[in-house]
Amino acid sequence: MNKYYMGIDIGSISTKGVIIDDEENIVASEYLWTEADPITATKRVVESLLKKCSNNNINLELYGLGTTGSARYLIGKILGANVIKNEITAHGIGTLSRHKDARTILEIGGQDSKLIIIKDGIIIDYAMNTLCAAGTGAFLSSQAKRLGIDIKDLGDIALKSKTPSKIAARCTVFAESDLVHKAQIGHSKEDIVAGICNAVAQNFLNNLGKGKKLEDKIIFQGGVSKNIGVVRAFENILNKKVYVDMESHLMGALGIAIISKKQATNSYRLNFDFNVTKYNFKTIGRECNKCSNNCELVDIYKNGEIIDTLGGRCQNSKNIINQKKIEA
């Protein structure tokens, strides 16, 4: 009997899922928009993964399930994951499984960007952007909308430019006024788009790359890596080849699947409910009111029954679940 492991990466913009076998080959994968509803997005991802498996006549025996990304706790509870891990470790491990000689990982996602430095096959350092989302996927998509361009075409348009406009992308708000200004004084659309791509790369390296040595081989991943304009911008600035994996968008999900494989007990099959996509999950936010901290809590209901509460600073929030269980 083959063993399979599932990894789900729920990002702010997109949700990714993979199923791998014992040799860490991807047997099924899915990528779709989160649309600010991680639960529905996850259901759709899981549904599609299961469908793809049954189409390929795979008898799915799950031994591990991991979640990562910004909604990892919520989805981890819902799916009953055996491992919930941060996206930095997941991305590092996912990439290392495909590129053993990787030294630098550039990752730009929807709302955050990360720089991961690897030495001798382990992550030794990382940097992550702070609260501000300037220079990430969200910035690119809002600017694409402004210019009336489909985000998918952004890269190809940027490549047409010979003299990219200089745009300051340190702050999204400033960048936008810069952009309007450049358009009004007559810069062509291609030049502006190329300017945006350059600005994203420059901003990334200024913020995260300061003081860090970016060694070969450099891997670029995350949603923005699909934008060829940004890839070229990185190559021009760094003067080095930047590799983009065909499956670069799945690296986080792949990484977490591998981590779940490492932590899974071999003899014990994961108690995964294949009907999970048919259940009705609901989350209700409330304030705790038990002390002056007033934590914002989120109750997770499965078919009307509370299964967990997230977001509390102390044990007070947990007590409620126990009480409700007793009442029921």
Binding site: S70, K85, N86, E87, I88, T89, I123, Y126, M128
Partner: peptide
């Protein structure tokens, strides 16, 4: 997220 990955 930062703390956890740093610990890793």
């Amino acid at each position: 997220t930062r703390l956890e990955s740093f610990y890793d």
